[in-house]
Amino acid sequence: MWDANRLRIATDAAGVALWSWNVDTDAISMDERAHDLWGVPSGPVTFTDLSANIHPEDLDRVRAAFASTREVLGAYEVEFRILCGKEVRWVSARGRGDDQGIVGRIMFGVFLDVTERKMAEEAREMIAGEMGHRVKNLFSIASALAMISERSTETSKEMSEDLRLRLSALNRAHDLVRPMAGDPEKAAHLADLLALLLAPYAGDGAGGDRVLVTVPELIVGEASATALALVVHELATNSIKYGALSTATGTLDVSCVADDREAVITWRERGGPEVIPPKGNDGYGSRLVTGAVSGQLGGSIDFEWLSEGVIIVLRIRKAQLGT
């Protein structure tokens, strides 16, 4: 029943490529499917010939595995990458060691193209790594916002409400940028993001006349939105405690200019108590802001401590802002 023709039909259906190896001459014979998989012309080849197509990062590992196949007890499998022009394929080479199934001086095995499976595995690993990174970031953000809330409130109830408002604003900010990858037309604009983040600090929940945001049409990505949110929360907290937003008549003006290289955001406070420049080492808040701007936003931040109101200038790489 299982003649050569039917076996070939079965192997074709399974996508199996066949090879044989003469252990004395090192000659490797492959069927047509195997030659197509490796991208080599028909005819006998040697491991040295095939090595030219093995990915350089995998070559030493595959060479060692090939040299030890006859000593392996039972079945073995080696997975590695091969190069076919600019295309990278994953191959699974399978056989039996310890000279099991050897006929004369020839051993037999199969090649399987496992590219799709390996790509799926890499995608899952990438997603898992990204999820882990995002979870760590969320914990860092929550911790930073909790510290900001702690410094800007006096009772646990006030802190709870303050933190809830900050997290709610941050969540809505992420809602703005989340569709960006799938639909660039719905990407977040800097003006919307700043207005949303500053709403909890304006007193009436809508911004009113105390907070004015004037910025050009700039797109903000998810990672930058998170960093920018931390900076805005910290600057607004300081304004509520010591600056313009600590008085009923104080105002905050946030503006921005941009060129091809960078966006310059200016935070200008007026109408608050007389500004006293800080002395001594930077506190946690200053380190938080500086770290977020220089690290995640690839920019810089400068403070001008004018008596009538502080002016803060954030310089952000324009390319970084959209990530």
Rank of each mutant, 00 (worst) to 15 (best):
L7D: 05
D12C: 14
V16H: 12
N22G: 10
V23Y: 05
S29Y: 13
H35T: 01
D36T: 13
D36N: 08
W38L: 06
G39A: 11
L50W: 02
P56H: 00
L73N: 13
A75L: 15
Y76V: 08
L83F: 13
W90M: 04
I106H: 01
M107I: 15
M107P: 02
T115E: 01
M119F: 10
E122Q: 14
S140P: 06
S143Y: 09
E158P: 04
S160D: 13
D162E: 13
L167R: 01
L170E: 01
L176S: 07
E185A: 13
A191M: 12
A206G: 12
G208R: 09
V215N: 12
E222P: 02
E222K: 11
S224V: 00
L230E: 02
E234L: 02
E234W: 02
L235F: 04
K241P: 13
L245A: 06
L245H: 05
G250K: 00
V254M: 06
V254T: 02
S255R: 13
E262H: 15
R268F: 03
E269S: 08
G272K: 00
P278N: 10
G283F: 11
G285R: 00
G285D: 00
V289N: 00
T290C: 07
S294G: 07
L297T: 13
W305N: 14
L306V: 06
S307M: 14
G309C: 05
R317H: 10
L321N: 04
L321Y: 02
G322Q: 14
